[in-house]
């Protein structure tokens, strides 16, 4: 039962496609190819409002999920590569041995193997959180799969920044959040303030969790030193 003790008769809403022709990755040409990947990523990174204005809001979820997993896996590979490199540099400065470095790197390899699954599951959790906050802040006119498409493309494109050593993760996080805001505004058709709050408020709540994660990573890295 909802507010006011009234009988609630659920109705399904038609999902209009409108003039959304899709980002290049979703179109028949170039489609899910390297050219499509590059064009879509460029479009998303530098003109996110246009990109999310073109993005399809119905149809199968294959294209956005594959986009996220492909770029997420590549980005994670580079992120782990820079971590390993930093660990080796720190070890050489502090006189670390190869065994501890090998153990730390084996964790990195395991992280890379499970990365596609973890990225996918994290995107589902993020979708649920952003959609819940949209509902709490006044409503989400389109279904949760539209929020998921936005998260997939925003996160996927932002993983490209992981190619930058040292600060890539931070840039990717901030850029990804900004793109998610632009995407929710365009795709869900909600005001910018609501879209921003739906993205920023969970980030603020999760900040402690992220700080805890960074503490774990820093502790693990220091533990690997002699």
């Amino acid at each position: 039962m909802d507010d006011g003790g009234e009988d609630v008769v659920p109705v399904d809403i038609e999902r209009p496609e409108g003039l959304r022709v899709g980002v290049p990755w979703e179109r028949p040409t170039p489609g899910m190819s390297f050219a499509g990947l590059v064009q879509t990523t460029r479009l998303l990174l530098f003109t996110p409002t246009d990109a999310f204005g073109l993005m399809r809001v119905n149809g199968t979820m294959t294209a956005p999920l594959v986009y996220l997993v492909v770029l997420g896996t590549v980005g994670t590979f580079f992120g782990l590569l820079w971590q390993s490199w930093a660990r080796a540099m720190l070890g050489s400065v502090a006189g670390g041995n190869l065994q501890t470095l090998a153990v730390a790197n084996s964790y990195g390899v395991m992280s890379f193997v499970i990365a596609p699954f973890v990225i996918l599951l994290m995107a589902v959790v993020a979708t649920a959180v952003h959609h819940l906050f949209l509902l709490l802040l006044g409503g989400a006119p389109r279904p949760p799969d539209v929020t998921m498409r936005v998260v997939c493309y925003a996160w996927g494109a932002s993983y490209v920044w992981m190619l930058i050593p040292a600060c890539g993760g931070l840039v990717a996080t901030v850029w990804g959040a900004a793109m998610t805001i632009a995407g929710l505004r365009q795709a869900q058709g909600v005001p910018g303030g609501r879209a921003a709050a739906a993205v920023v408020v969970p980030y603020l709540i999760a900040l402690c969790g992220l700080l805890a994660l960074w503490t774990v990573m820093a502790t693990t890295m220091l533990d690997s030193l002699p």
Binding site: D7, L121, V124
Partner: peptide, 19 residues
């Protein structure tokens, strides 16, 4: 008692599987 329509979407099988 007055009836009121509430707009909503059913989750698809992909979304259900991901959950």
């Amino acid at each position: 008692m007055r009836s009121r329509s509430v707009a909503g979407y059913r989750l698809g099988s992909v979304e259900i599987a991901l959950v």
